[in-house]
């Protein structure tokens, strides 16, 4: 099964932005479950786009004004949800933010 781990946090999570993953990525890559991922620049650097009737509409900032913002994501591949939970729980961001585990659409 493939899952994306959506790493979310409130403003205070920004302090951790430059900390990296404390060896998590290396460990998971070695284990063979990490397929990709990245940390994201803060929402203040985001641009939101829509195309309506052929016109490109842009706005500054993130799509959703919410406390919890997406701060990064990882693509993993593992046996089942239990393994995904274990992988996500080992991520340092789980200790200060939240991690949403989303299965990918199976094509």
């Amino acid at each position: 099964m493939k899952y994306v781990l959506l790493i979310c946090g409130d403003e205070s999570a920004a302090e951790h932005a430059d900390e990296g993953c404390g060896g998590w990525s290396e460990k998971m890559a070695e284990r063979g479950v990490l397929r990709g991922g990245a940390g994201l620049r803060p929402p203040s650097d985001a641009t939101t786009l829509r195309v309506r009737e052929g016109e490109v509409l842009l706005s500054d900032g993130p799509f959703a004004e919410s406390k919890e913002q997406l701060g990064g994501f990882c693509l993993i591949e593992c046996a089942d949800l239990d393994e995904a939970i274990e992988i996500a729980a080992a991520h340092p961001a789980a200790a200060y933010g939240t991690i949403e585990i989303r299965p990918l659409i199976d094509l």
Partner: peptide, 14 residues
């Protein structure tokens, strides 16, 4: 089915 919740008795550590 979609989230891959395993059909099993969890291993001892869980």
């Amino acid at each position: 089915r979609h989230a891959g919740i395993p059909y099993r008795v969890p291993p001892a550590h869980l």
